[in-house]
Amino acid sequence: MTRTYSGLPRWVFVPALLGAVFVVLPLVAMTTRVDWSQFGALVTSDSSVAALELSLRTSAASTALCLVLGIPLALVLARTSFRGQRALRSLLLLPLVLPPVVGGIALLYTFGRRGLLGESLDLLGIRIAFSTTAVVLAQTFVALPFLVVSLEGTLRAVGQRYEVVAATLGARPTTVLTRVTVPLVLPGLLSGAVLSFARALGEFGATLTFAGSLQGVTRTLPLEIYLQRETDADAAVALSLVLVVVAVLVVALAQGRGRQWG
């Protein structure tokens, strides 16, 4: 059996182990509080199933929206240079550090009935706030920066040498983008998409502020867990475990695909 030389001092493994325990131990502790005899009944109630289905549907939709908007954004930030680029990047990354409830308030004053755009949309009979669409927009607002950061970093890492060669050989910009750039950055693109999906799946504050908590319409699984925590702690723990399992499956699937494409 061949051992790989890490080149790390031994003391590094101590805080590394503490960090791993810090993350894993609370998850293990949560499993010890699950009432396994009632687990099936707790997670298959009408409200729980509706919340899980809504979370998966809206998270998938917001991830698709992140791809549509985030890929061009990352390309512009990584492949161009213009005045105000740093300021634009800082603004785009603000949702990473802002409290989600602040994002919800910002969205409410943009798309709400008296918002910057919402008032005009309301005259056309389009109401976004406190709807399923509002859930998707709230999730996209907080998840989009994860895709942009991941993909921009990958684009900068792979460089432009293959793109330059393709362009020199006569390939059009769109051909270079679809046949050269995208295949090169697929692992980073996948990682960003998974991070966006995971962030959307766990979104709470912006969703509650902008979309409210209407069962079957805007009440996602994190909101359902919060409400159940106030009335039925066993159901909250069981639903939390379901959310953890879904997240683990998504990350594991992405890592497997990433290794294949890598």
Results as ranks from 00 to 15, higher is better:
108 L>P: 00
108 L>G: 02
110 T>M: 06
110 T>A: 08
112 G>C: 05
113 R>P: 10
113 R>A: 12
115 G>C: 04
116 L>Q: 03
117 L>Y: 10
117 L>M: 07
117 L>V: 06
117 L>N: 02
119 E>R: 14
120 S>Y: 13
122 D>M: 13
123 L>R: 14
124 L>A: 15
128 I>D: 07
129 A>D: 12
129 A>W: 05
131 S>R: 09
132 T>I: 03
133 T>A: 14
133 T>N: 10
133 T>H: 06
134 A>F: 05
135 V>Y: 02
135 V>N: 02
135 V>P: 01
136 V>G: 01
137 L>Q: 05
137 L>C: 03
137 L>K: 03
137 L>H: 04
139 Q>C: 01
140 T>A: 13
140 T>S: 09
141 F>K: 02
141 F>N: 00
141 F>D: 00
143 A>V: 00
143 A>M: 01
144 L>I: 06
145 P>W: 04
146 F>S: 00
146 F>W: 08
147 L>R: 04
148 V>Y: 08
148 V>S: 03
149 V>Y: 06
149 V>L: 15
152 E>I: 07
152 E>L: 07
153 G>T: 08
154 T>G: 11
154 T>Q: 14
158 V>G: 11
159 G>R: 11
160 Q>R: 15
160 Q>N: 12
161 R>D: 15
161 R>P: 05
161 R>W: 10
162 Y>L: 14
162 Y>H: 14
162 Y>V: 04
162 Y>G: 06
163 E>F: 06
165 V>L: 15
165 V>E: 12
165 V>S: 12
166 A>S: 11
167 A>I: 05
169 L>W: 01
169 L>V: 02
170 G>C: 07
170 G>A: 06
171 A>C: 09
171 A>I: 02
172 R>L: 12
172 R>P: 06
173 P>C: 08
174 T>L: 15
175 T>Q: 14
177 L>K: 05
177 L>Q: 07
178 T>H: 13
178 T>Y: 14
180 V>A: 09
180 V>M: 07
181 T>D: 08
182 V>A: 11
182 V>P: 06
182 V>E: 08
185 V>H: 13
185 V>R: 12
187 P>N: 10
188 G>D: 11
189 L>T: 06
190 L>R: 06
191 S>L: 12
191 S>D: 12
192 G>L: 05
195 L>F: 08
195 L>I: 04
198 A>V: 15
199 R>G: 01
199 R>N: 02
200 A>P: 04
200 A>Q: 01
200 A>S: 13
201 L>E: 02
